[in-house]
Nucleic acid binder design. Structure first.
Length: 875
RNA sequence: GGGAGCAUAGCUCAGUUGGGAGAGCACGUGCUUUACACGCAUGGGGUCGGGGGUUCGAGUCCCUCUGCUCCCACCA
């Protein structure tokens, strides 16, 4: 039995029951014989979700990202694919650890060191158990049609096995090594970071000129001088040639350091002398290696000066800088300071300045891994949408440096490397060892570090499907199809998935990367916690409904992948649309009465043909736009059709036809057919409301149990009545013209008069007089075939002409019209038409146009000229 | 220092092979027309950032200038 539909659409009453129904019915699970009516097994279509932070909360970026994925998945599901949208969450190493540490400090006043490693990790797991399902529930509120039974987590047993397999494989191939390098250390998070996790920011700093004996060096980080082991000059710099090989005394530290020559030095910058701090600057590190200089680490990972810093030991880097500068000044070593703009690296997690520092870390050798990942994109096996992001990707991967994957935190995948305390043997192992493989000693210690979060994320498309096992899911759904994400993580994630997929599975993990822009606030600023300008998508769902939010976000997702400004109030428009659809559906369902099934009638009225024609075009357009990832255009066309064509015109036309016993039955059929088809097309964008309405259809008017798994519409060629349907547009033009003139002349709706229509389509207007009367607000219509009585009528002071595309409609003037104003208006119209006519005539007498322009265009313009001439004659 | 993107109606933005300048919001006017005032109808409003070029014709292609945004990069 059809349910009763309330007067206004209430998303809060619809969304949850509908979602529960979908979940219960198993609609989100892959359906092996999806493509109904087609032979054989359905082709698979797979998307893996970009896993949100397990302890995170849904923000608008997630809402956008997942709406786009859900639209694609729902479309493909209806189109008969065996779809899998695989959900999951990320353990998000540093971010989660920071969050739990904060909690620990606030609640118990303890640090993770107070608890110890095992106890702390247990706390993080507790935290994950408490909050891990939060974001999943939030995604459900959006209507995300993920197969929740396959929910994965990057620290699950299976995924952890994949991480180990990859690490050990790479280790065995010699693609992972441990070494001392200058890496970026965040002293707040006290861990190493990869290059991609450092954000560069231009800052105004100071350039300190410091006298080292006979030389003056310039630096932006004066405290690093504590670790200087040399001064470098350019080998061909005549100013300093005589000093090369000599030494200077390092101020404050009173250390004798050599002057070396190295081509790295830019003679034109500063004084042409560079202080060399091997352990705290990547360039200096290289110089030191070339000249066999001693390495002196003067800061630890927490940002404190070490004992190597002499009397400054124990100070923070900030205090050390102040103290060093003060002492230099007091000692007369500080020549000058000047303002200097330079780039400072900041930790992408805590935004503190990172400290380049020598330390032992694990690295992945990138050169060999990158090459096939470059080829995959260059050879088109993986394409980016929009295409321009390929350039960004290629530039990065072609120049990528080795990847620092070790982190000095506790939450994450522990590096599977053990060192034997007895013989010093180092082993990378898939399974925890009981004893040393070399000497059988049991005195083994595991490397204390964990892996970069992105190390496990890089494996996501195949680790979630069961790799390294040879599972049915992996065989069926890998490689996946489309990856949907923002362009901000091309390097962090997308590129790493591509080279990891190729390396470990031999296949590109997806064929298409659909990138969208980032969301900004109404002023165009990035949304961030610190600015407090974030918009809570759940509040928007609450206020406007999930479908309205989805439609809004879809309409923003342009093909260019540019950034998008979010103005929450704009959702109102889409809520209004949902309400419109709701009420139109109420009308249709109420009108069709006991219509039990629909069969395409043999003959249709012109308005019926018209809406069917529009509908076929819509099916074609929406399908094409979705296939080309033009979600905004698809959504736009759907709204235009439903609101303008269907509601504002067809329903009004249908109301007239429903009063006519001869047309009523077919009109009911077409009302039901058009609405049902539109619901199917709209479903990927607005799943809840479309399903709710669809469930209210009489069973004979729908196919299957639920819209979510209903068939995607295909254009029906027999319903393309383009030519005849066009006549409906003539009627509509005439109606619009009359309404416009009535409005302009302020004729109240209550004043109805008999109209005269002069047209070459006399038959059309005669047979549709009822429709014309109803829509134009007339009491009667007289139709005059063109030419038959045009004289006199036009000059009749009691009537006024309204020119529509193929008809001239005369409005009786007796109705309170200011004749003077009317005359002026006619003069104005005549002048405008004359001007247009002259311009067009000039264009058509230009041989450049008539000879070179396509014939179609020339013909069209000639017809326009003829029409204008006719119009002028009338005026 | 390289690279990319954006500049279209008061606001936010569409505009897919060059030929009609568009939408939503805001604004004006008129409507309680029994699906909907979260509505209906009808209007006003733009030198498509400036300049140059290709073309019969350019918001759309090329060059240049200006303004804004972002990314990459080891010059102290």
């Amino acid at each position: 039995m059809p349910k009763e539909l309330g007067k206004a659409y209430q998303p809060s009453e619809t969304e949850q029951p509908i979602y529960a129904m979908w979940e219960k019915s198993g609609a989100f699970k892959p359906c092996p014989n999806g493509k109904r009516g087609k032979a054989g097994k359905a082709p698979p279509f797979t998307i893996v979700i970009p896993p949100p932070n397990v302890t995170g909360q849904l923000h608008l970026g997630h809402a956008l990202d997942n709406t786009l994925q859900d639209v694609l998945i729902r479309y493909k599901r209806m189109d008969g694919y065996e779809t899998l949208w695989l959900p999951g969450t990320d353990h998000a190493g540093i971010a989660t650890q920071i969050k739990v540490e904060e909690e620990l400090r606030e609640a118990e006043g303890k640090t993770r060191f107070d608890l110890g490693r095992d106890e702390f990790i247990k706390r993080v797991w507790d935290w994950k158990e408490t909050y891990g399902s939060r974001i999943v529930e939030q995604l459900k509120k959006l209507g995300a049609s993920c197969d929740w039974d396959r929910l994965r987590f990057t620290m699950d047993e299976g995924l952890s096995r994949a991480v180990r397999e990859v690490f050990v494989t790479l280790y065995e191939k010699g693609l992972i090594y441990r070494g001392s390098r200058i890496t970026n250390i965040c002293v707040t998070c006290h861990t190493a970071l990869s290059d991609t996790e450092v954000e560069h920011e231009e800052q105004e700093g100071k350039l300190y000129h410091i006298r080292y004996g006979d030389l003056t060096v310039a630096t932006t980080r004066p405290e690093t001088m504590l670790g200087d082991t040399a001064v470098a000059v350019h080998p061909e710099d005549e100013r300093y040639a005589h000093l090369i090989g000599k030494t200077v005394i390092l101020p404050l530290m009173e250390r004798e350091i050599p002057i070396v020559a190295d081509e790295y030095v830019d003679r034109a910058f500063g004084t042409g002398c560079v202080k060399i701090t091997p352990c705290h600057d990547p360039n200096d590190y290289d110089v030191a290696k070339r000249h066999n200089l001693p390495e002196l680490l003067i800061m630890d990972q927490k940002g404190f000066i070490t004992e190597n810093g002499g009397k400054y030991a124990g100070l923070t880097r900030e205090d050390a800088r102040k103290a060093v500068v003060a002492d230099l000044e007091a000692g007369g070593y500080l020549v000058k300071t000047e303002p200097h703009i330079h780039n400072v690296g900041a930790c992408s997690r805590c935004h503190c300045a990172v400290e380049p520092m020598a330390s032992e870390q694990w690295f992945v050798t990138m050169k060999e891994l990158a090459a096939p990942a470059v080829a995959a994109v260059k050879e088109g096996r993986t394409v980016f949408v929009p295409e321009r992001f390929e350039k960004l990707y290629l530039h990065w991967i072609e120049n990528v440096r080795d990847w620092c994957v070790s982190r000095q935190i506790w939450w994450g995948h522990r590096i599977p490397v053990w060192t034997c305390g007895a013989c010093g043997h180092v082993m990378a192992l898939r399974d925890d060892p009981a004893s040393c493989a070399h000497c059988r000693s049991t005195a083994l210690t595991q490397d204390p570090d964990v892996l970069d979060t992105w190390f496990s994320s890089a494996l996501w498309p195949f680790s979630t499907l069961g790799w390294p096992g040879d599972t049915e899911d992996l065989r069926r759904f890998y490689p996946t199809d489309v990856l949907v994400t923002g362009y901000d993580i091309i390097y962090l994630w997308v590129a790493r998935m591509i080279f990891s997929g190729i390396e470990h599975t031999g296949r590109e993990p997806f064929h298409t990367v659909y990138m969208h822009g980032l969301l900004r606030d109404a002023q165009g600023r990035k949304m961030s916690k610190s600015l407090g300008n974030g918009v809570d998508p759940l509040e928007m769902v609450e206020q406007y409904g999930a479908d309205a939010l989805r439609l809004y976000l879809s309409s923003l997702a342009t093909l260019q992948g540019g950034d998008m400004r979010i103005v929450p109030e704009r959702c109102e428009h889409f809520r209004n649309f949902c309400n419109k659809l709701w009420n139109a559906s109420r009308f249709v369902l109420g009108s069709i009465g006991d219509t039990a099934s629909w069969t395409l009638p043999d003959s249709l009225t012109l308005p019926d043909m018209w809406i069917c024609t529009k509908l076929q075009a819509l099916v074609y357009d929406v399908t094409g736009h979705l296939d080309r990832y033009e979600l905004n255009l698809a959504a736009q066309k759907l709204l235009d059709f439903i609101w303008d064509d269907f509601c504002d015109w067809y329903i009004e036309l249908a109301k007239v036809q429903l009063r006519n016993p001869e047309a009523a039955d077919t009109t009911k059929q077409i009302l039901a057919y058009a609405l049902e088809t539109a619901l199917r097309l709209l479903h990927p964008f607005a799943p809840h409301i479309t399903e709710e309405i669809w469930q209210s259809f009489p069973e004979g008017l729908r196919e299957g149990a639920a819209l979510v798994t209903a068939r995607w519409p295909e254009p029906e060629d027999r319903l393309r009545f383009t030519h005849e349907a066009g006549q409906t547009e003539l009627l509509m033009d005439a109606v619009r013209a009359v309404r416009s003139r009535r409005n302009e002349m302020k004729v109240p709706p209550s004043k109805k008069a008999a109209w005269t229509v002069e047209t070459p389509y006399a038959e059309l207007f005669e047979s549709h007089a009822e429709i014309f009367r109803a829509l134009a607000g007339a009491s009667g219509v007289t139709v005059i075939p063109v030419g038959a009585g045009s004289d006199g009528l036009c000059e009749d002071a009691q009537t006024v002409a309204v020119v529509a595309s193929a008809a001239t409609v005369y409005l009786p003037l007796a109705e309170l019209i200011d004749l003077e104003a009317e005359k002026a208006r006619l003069d104005k119209a005549r002048a405008a038409a004359q001007k247009e006519y002259d311009a067009l005539e000039a264009k058509l007498s230009n041989p450049g146009f008539t000879q070179k322009a396509p014939e179609k265009i020339v013909t069209a313009e000639r017809e326009r000229l003829a029409a204008l001439r006719e119009k002028l004659e009338r005026l």
